[in-house]
C-alpha cells in the first residue's frame, strides 16, 4: 500500500513540453508511472516521445484519458491558473512542482481547489514517490526502495538525503511526500500523517521540518492525540539567525514562533523521537519499531 498515489494512478503532466516538464516526464515514465497525457496550449494533437498524447486544455485531457492526477511544471506566473484549471476539470490530486508562485496567488488558489474537492500538494515541492509503484514529481527514484516506512518533509534535497540514508540502511518506504516550503501550501504535515496512520503497510513515519511557522508543532500534537504509529523527526535550521529568509519563503522566524528549538521541544513533548543529525533518523526509526 501507499498514500495518495499507487500503480493505478493515471497521471497528466501540465507543461509537458517545457524544459523541466519534458525531462521529468521521461524520468517518471522510465520509473513506471502511468503517464496518460500532457497539456501544453497550442500543442494539442501532438505526441510526447511518440506515445503520450498532448492536449490544449486540462478539461479535454481528462475527458480523453481519464486522468486522476496531474503534476504541474509551468512557470510561476502561470502556475496559479494551472492549479485552478486542473481542479475545475475535476482532477482529484494535483501536484505543483513550480517554485516561486506569489503567495497572494495562493490565497486565491487554496480556497478554489478546496471547494472543488481536490487535494493539492505544493507548490514549490518535489512531489512524491511510492517506491516500485509510481512517482509524481522530481524525487530521484534511484535513492528509494519499497518498505514499511512513510516519510513527509517540507524540504527537497534534505528529503533525498534522509531517504538515501534510510535506503542505505535497508529501510524502504511506502511513500515519500515533499509538501513544499512555501507559506501557503495545499497539503500539510497532518494531512500526510493521517494518511500514513490509515495506511496498513506503513509501520512508522519520518517527519522532516524546518524553521518558520507552527505546522510542526500542530503536527506534533496530532501525533500524540491521533496516531498509534511511531513518528521520528528532524528539524533543519537550528543554527539559522532569527528574522532571515533561508531560501524558502516560509522559513522566517518571527518573534518566538517557529524556531528549531521550539519545534524540537514540541516533538519531544509529544513522543516524537528527535534526530540531531539527518543520519540519526535511521537509528531512531529502528528503536521506535522495537519498542
Amino acid at each position: 500500500m501507499s498514500i495518495f498515489i499507487d500503480k493505478e494512478t493515471r497521471l497528466l503532466i501540465q507543461g509537458i513540453t517545457g524544459r523541466d516538464g519534458s525531462f521529468h516526464a521521461k524520468q517518471m515514465m522510465e520509473y513506471g508511472t502511468k503517464v496518460v497525457g500532457g497539456v501544453t496550449p497550442g500543442k494539442g494533437g501532438l505526441k510526447f516521445e511518440t506515445t503520450v498524447p498532448i492536449f490544449n486544455t486540462v478539461a479535454q485531457a481528462v475527458k480523453e484519458t481519464g486522468a486522476n492526477a496531474t503534476v504541474i511544471y509551468v512557470p510561476p506566473p502561470f502556475a496559479a491558473d494551472a492549479m485552478m484549471e486542473a481542479a475545475d476539470a475535476g482532477i482529484p490530486f494535483i501536484v505543483c512542482i513550480t517554485e516561486g508562485v506569489p503567495v497572494l496567488d495562493m490565497t486565491r488558489v487554496y480556497p478554489f481547489v478546496k471547494e472543488k474537492g481536490a487535494r493539492l500538494l505544493g507548490p514549490n515541492c518535489p512531489g512524491l514517490i511510492s517506491p516500485g509503484q509510481s512517482k509524481v514529481g522530481i524525487i530521484p527514484g534511484s535513492i528509494c526502495a519499497s518498505g514499511p516506512y512513510g516519510l513527509v518533509s517540507r524540504s527537497g534535497t534534505l528529503t533525498y538525503e534522509v531517504v538515501y540514508q534510510m535506503t542505505r540502511a535497508g529501510m524502504g518506504q511506502t511513500t515519500c511526500v515533499g509538501i513544499g516550503g512555501d507559506p501557503i501550501n495545499g497539503t500539510n504535515f497532518i494531512d500526510c500523517l493521517a494518511a500514513f496512520e490509515a495506511d496498513n503497510e506503513t509501520k512508522a513515519v519520518v517527519m522532516i521540518g524546518e524553521i518558520g511557522g507552527t505546522d510542526e508543532q500542530e503536527a506534533a500534537k496530532f501525533v500524540k492525540e491521533k496516531m498509534s504509529k511511531p513518528v521520528v523527526g528532524f528539524i533543519a535550521g537550528q543554527t539559522a539567525p532569527p528574522g532571515r529568509r533561508m531560501g524558502h519563503a516560509g522559513a522566517i522566524i518571527s518573534g518566538s514562533a517557529g524556531t528549531a528549538a521550539e519545534k524540537m521541544q514540541a516533538f519531544e513533548e509529544n513522543g516524537i523521537g528527535v534526530a540531531k543529525r539527518p543520519i540519526d533518523v535511521v537509528s531512531l526509526l529502528k528503536k521506535s519499531i522495537k519498542s
Binding site: G156, E161, I208, Q238, T239, A251, A260
Partner: peptide, 13 residues
C-alpha cells in the same frame, strides 16, 4: 536546496 543547506549549517555547528 534550502533545507539541505540549513541542515549542513547545523551539522557544521
Amino acid at each position: 536546496g534550502a533545507g539541505l543547506a540549513m541542515a549542513t549549517m547545523d551539522l557544521v555547528k
